[in-house]
């Protein structure tokens, strides 16, 4: 009985993790500019990664494999945002300025 619950739970986690990585990849293709693509990439890096790692942990059970999976997860959760920030700040210093929809909308509202 317990085994069945764990099995179903890990099914849900792993399949939804795969779905989230797919959504993130679709986002990197669909979004119009570099700055919004950063956000799409971080979907597959946070949600997809966490769900997949936890799903695999449930499959592995209390073994050394779970420890390794958690170490991989902790490593990605620390380095993922760090490298995203590095890419973003490198783009900003190279003169790649993001356009702001908020500002354009405000100035349009001001005109009308």
């Amino acid at each position: 009985m317990m085994g069945l619950i764990v099995e179903i739970l890990s099914w849900i986690l792993i399949v939804s993790g795969g779905a989230f990585t797919l959504i993130g990849a679709i986002g990197t293709l669909r979004f119009p500019d570099f700055w919004s693509r950063l956000h799409a990439a971080s979907v597959s890096e946070s949600a997809g990664m966490i769900l997949l790692i936890f799903g695999m942990c449930l499959q592995a059970g209390p073994t050394l494999i779970t420890v390794k999976l958690l170490i991989i997860g902790a490593f990605i959760i620390i380095t993922g945002p760090t490298s995203t920030h590095a890419v973003a700040s490198a783009a900003l210093t190279s003169g790649e300025t993001p356009e702001s929809d908020e500002d354009t909308r405000k100035s349009q509202e001001g005109k009308s």
Partner: peptide, 21 residues
Amino acid sequence: TLYDRVLAVNSFGTLTVLFIA
């Protein structure tokens, strides 16, 4: 841009890690 490509490489790497696992 160059940064799109760096972002794609980084994203690809994370996906590869998960794919190998």
